[in-house]
Design a binder for these strands. Sequence first.
DNA 1: GCGTAGTGTGTTCCAGCCCC
DNA 2: GGGGCTGGAACACACTACGC
Length: 382
Amino acid sequence: MSAFSGYYPYTAGPNDAPPIPLTPQQLALAYHHFQFMQQNTMPPPPPPPPQAPVIDPALQVRDPNTNTQRLEALERKVRDLKAEKRVNSSPEARSSKRRKKSDAYLLRDAKGLSVKQEEVRKQLMKKMKTELMTLTGMARDANSESDSDSESSSAPPARPSRSVMSFDFNENIDHPTNTKVIDRAAELIWKEQHDPKADTFSLLHKDVKFTLADIASFGKTNFRTWKRSWKAETDTAAAAKRARQEAKGRQTHEKKIFEAKPTQSTSGVQERHKKDPAFILETDWMSDEISGPDTDDEAKKDIHRKLLVEAAKLTPEQESQPLWERVRPGFQTTEMTEIKDDLDGICEEQKRTQKKKSRPVVQRLNLGNLHSRTLPARCGLL
DNA sequence: GCGTAGTGTGTTCCAGCCCC
DNA sequence: GGGGCTGGAACACACTACGC
C-alpha cells in the first residue's frame, strides 16, 4: 500500500495547484482502480467506508488556502474545456474527429493491406478466436492450440486458467453479456501483443500497427459466425434455409465441373435438343437423387434396396455398397428428362475416360419412379 | 506411404440494408 | 458516416477412399 501513498487523481502540470492528499476512502478506491488497470480484471466492490471517521469532520481544521487552490484549479479546468469545445466545433475539427474515429481501425478491413499487415491480421484473428473459445469454454485445450500457428518455438508462457464466460446468442453483439466477453478477450490479446518488447509478444511482424478495436472487430465476426451456426441448429426455418444454401452450393460445384471439363461439352447437348442446358445447372433441377424411399416401413425399404441392387447388377460381394435412386419430378417434361439424362451420360463418360482414377461416386439408378414435390417457380421455361 | 479427388463443414469476405 | 446485421459466395481445411 505504501506505493500508493502518493497517489493523486491526475498528473500535476506546471500550472497546476500542488497535489491535494486523498482521504483513506479515496485512496482505497484509487488502489482498486489501479489493480483493475494492472490485472485487467473486474475489481471487487470497494470496501465499505469505515463506520466512523477517524477524525470527526466537524472537528477538522479547514485550510482556506487549500480550498482556494482547489477552486482555482477547477476554474482553470472549466476554461480549458470551454476552449477545447470551441476548437472542436469548427468544421475542420469535426472532419478530423470523424477521421480519428475511422482511424480506430487499422486492420479491420482486408482491402488495401500489405502482405505483412495481412499476415498479422490473420494471426490476430486466429488468436482472438482461440481466446474467445477459451473464455467461453468452447475449447478446453485452446491454450495449447492457440499458439501452434507457426510460432510454437517462441510461444509465450501459458496464462493461468480463466473463469468461463458465455455468449448469449439470443442477443445481439452489443448486448452487455456479449460485449463483456469480446472486450475481455480483446484486452487480453492487446495486453500480450501490442508491445513488441514484451515477453508475450508473438506476432510475425513487430512493425505492423493495429488497435484494440481491430481485435474486437475480429471477435465480433467470430460471434456472428457462431450465432449463425447456433441459429441454424435451434431454428428450424433457419436450418431449412441453410440446407437450401448448401444444396445450391453443390449445384454450383457441379456446374463448375461441367464448365471446366467440356469433353463432349454441353454445347453438344444444346445442338441435339436446341436448348441451352446451362439454366438446368443454375437451378434446383439437378437434385433428383434420393438415398432411399421416404417411409418408415423396413420391408418396403428392403424391397427398394433389392430393386436397386438388381438394376445396378451388383455381385453378392458388392451388395453392401451405397446406391442412390434417380427420381425425376412428375411435373417434368419428357424433353427436360432427356436433356438431364444426356448431361448425366456426359458426366459418367467423363468419369470413365478420366486418366487419373478417382474415388468412385455413388451409383445413381433410374427405376422409373416419379416424385410429386412442389413445382419450382421456373418450371415454365421448358 | 504419398498424392489426389470427392465431400462436408467451418470461416472469411463482401455487398446491401438498416439504424443511430 | 459508421457500426451492426444478414445472406451469399468464395475459400480453407479436415477427412476419407482410392490408385500408384
